[in-house]
Design a protein around this nucleic acid. Structure first.
Length: 471
RNA sequence: GGCUGAGUGGCAGAGUGGCUAUGCACCGGAUUGCAAAUCCGUUUACCUCGGUUCGACUCCGGGCUCAGCCUCCA
């Protein structure tokens, strides 16, 4: 039974979907005005792991992750680059998709763009005005009236009075109350705009998510996720808008992933201390980044350090080394339901499931994989039934986390980066070294090994055979 | 100042009211011509002060420190 930590109630709760066998999952995606950084990568990966886990548990998952493609920053950046906002956002949507492929993130079921749901937003705003939860100001902006919603603050544990006390936002003269937030913004002449009963304008950020989630998942749905920094005010506002509108419940489970830090500080655009996914991919593989992300629990803060990335690399190498040379039916294990579960080791699968069901405890799940690798390494026979079963289990469970899906040989031997020796050259040198060793010419043998090591190739003699990998 | 949450061995990072997390690093051993990889074994811990308890790192309270949010933010 899956337990999920629900921010709404500040505790782990058994997950029970609204409709048996189905899960509606909404995650706040990115505003596309720049390349994604590691923090965005964490969101992609955390909810991808959830998506995979729910599917493995047999649920039909409707996973919606939105794209905010209308926003002040997009407009500003587009003007700076002399392109239209639509062109700019399309460019970064493409970049984001490329990043996701590199990180082995499955495409969500739906990836709505805010600009495609403007009609719904206008309709919702109209209804909120009619029901007294919103008001149009003289300048064409429409605001949500926070004090019209008694439950305001239930997600973040705040009270309206406390918020007022800590008030430090410059007060907008058109707001009736400083805490009110914008639903619709009147547009300036050369900005993208849509018609509305309150004049030409564009939607506020919070209303976008209410509209897109309702369009694709209905008024009430199962899980809403996003970064911890969105808890307030964004998610609080989503609840206020949506529940005021429907007089019912909005999302049942709220999940928040911890933030990625760099130097003990949140990684973010505004602090200008971020590394893009692209930056990191120059040095580490997508799989290594993914292993780094899942090495800590999703709710914990995660420090970005080269040591941590290196540790992820070492861990993956250990797994792939254990799998090396062991014949496993990879396609069957990774794609679709397992025809015959007897090919897997039930004990390890069970422990893995237990870890994942405990609020997606991926560090614990990885610990299970490490123990599995250890057991596997003790199995000398590469093609014994037991070896194949253990290796299959490792590949299958790795796949559940989106790792270990590659051919070990390809990962370990890698691509020559142009600098390093080619596979042919390496094989030739290994052959020469074998001759030297047979003649007990260890000086020559070691010289060849040292030279290859200096060029990034490690030789390993085991079982009378020499294998190699790039370091 | 207010609201969340966190403080575990050299590092990363789980977990539990009494019993080995796991990985890396370190040390010793096996294996190897020597290595590498692998295996075996050892060492290092639970911020602080009180309380509850037969017993707390684990529960409760105070304190200290850190992070996030209170402004766009994944």
């Amino acid at each position: 039974m899956l337990q999920i930590y629900n921010t709404l109630n500040r505790r782990k709760e058994p997950f029970e979907p609204l409709k048996a066998g189905h899960v509606g999952l909404y995650v706040c995606g990115v505003t596309v005005y720049d390349e994604c950084h590691v923090g965005h990568g964490r969101v992609m990966i955390v909810y991808d792991v959830l998506f995979r886990h729910l599917q493995a548990a047999g649920y039909a998952v409707n996973y919606v992750r939105n794209i905010t493609d209308v926003d002040d920053k997009i407009i500003k950046r587009a003007a700076e680059n002399n392109v239209t906002p639509a062109q700019l956002s399309q460019r970064y949507i493409d970049e984001m998709h490329a990043d996701e492929r590199a990180l082995n993130v499955l495409p969500p079921t739906h990836e709505p763009r805010a600009t495609e749901s403007i009609k719904s937003m206008v309709r919702i705003i109209g209804q909120l005005i009619d029901s007294g939860h919103a008001y149009a100001a003289d300048n064409g902006d429409v605001f949500y009236s926070v004090k019209s919603f008694p439950d305001y603050g239930k997600l973040s544990g705040r009270k309206i009075d406390e918020l007022r006390a800590g008030e430090r936002v410059a007060v907008d003269e058109y707001k009736r109350d400083p805490l009110d937030f914008v639903l619709w913004k009147a547009s300036k002449p050369d900005e993208p705009s849509w018609e509305s009963p309150w004049g030409n304008g564009r939607p506020g950020w919070h209303i976008e998510c209410s509209a897109m989630s309702m369009d694709l998942l209905g008024e009430e749905f199962d899980i809403h996720g996003g970064g911890a920094d969105l808890q307030f005010p964004h998610h609080e506002n989503e609840i206020a808008q949506s529940e005021a509108l429907t007089c019912g419940r909005f999302a049942r489970y709220w999940m928040h992933n911890g933030l990625v830090r760099i130097g003990e500080e949140k990684m973010s655009k505004s602090l200008n201390n971020f590394l893009t996914i692209r930056d990191v991919l120059a040095q580490y593989s997508g799989e290594e980044i993914r292993a780094f992300i899942i090495s800590s629990h999703y709710r914990s803060p995660l420090n970005y350090t080269s040591d941590a990335l290196l540790a992820a690399r070492t861990a993956l190498r250990r797994f792939y080394t254990a799998l090396r040379g062991r014949p496993v039916p990879r396609d069957t294990l990774l794609n679709g339901p397992l025809a015959d579960s007897t090919v897997l080791d039930a004990g390890y699968v069970e422990r893995f499931e237990a870890a994942m069901n405990d609020d997606l405890n991926t560090p614990e799940a990885l610990a299970v994989l490490h123990e599995l690798a250890n057991t596997l390494n003790k199995e000398a026979e590469t093609d014994s039934e037991r070896s194949i079963r253990l290796a299959s289990t490792l590949v299958h469970l790795g796949g559940r986390l989106g790792i270990l899906e590659k051919d070990p040989e390809v990962v370990l031997q890698g691509e020559s980066d142009g600098e390093g020796p080619s596979a042919e050259e390496i094989e030739a040198l290994i052959s020469e070294r074998r001759t030297a060793r047979e003649a007990r010419d260890f000086a020559r043998s070691d010289q060849i090994r040292d030279e290859l090591a200096a060029r990034g190739v490690v030789l390993e003699d085991a079982g009378g055979k020499t294998t190699w990998r790039r370091d």
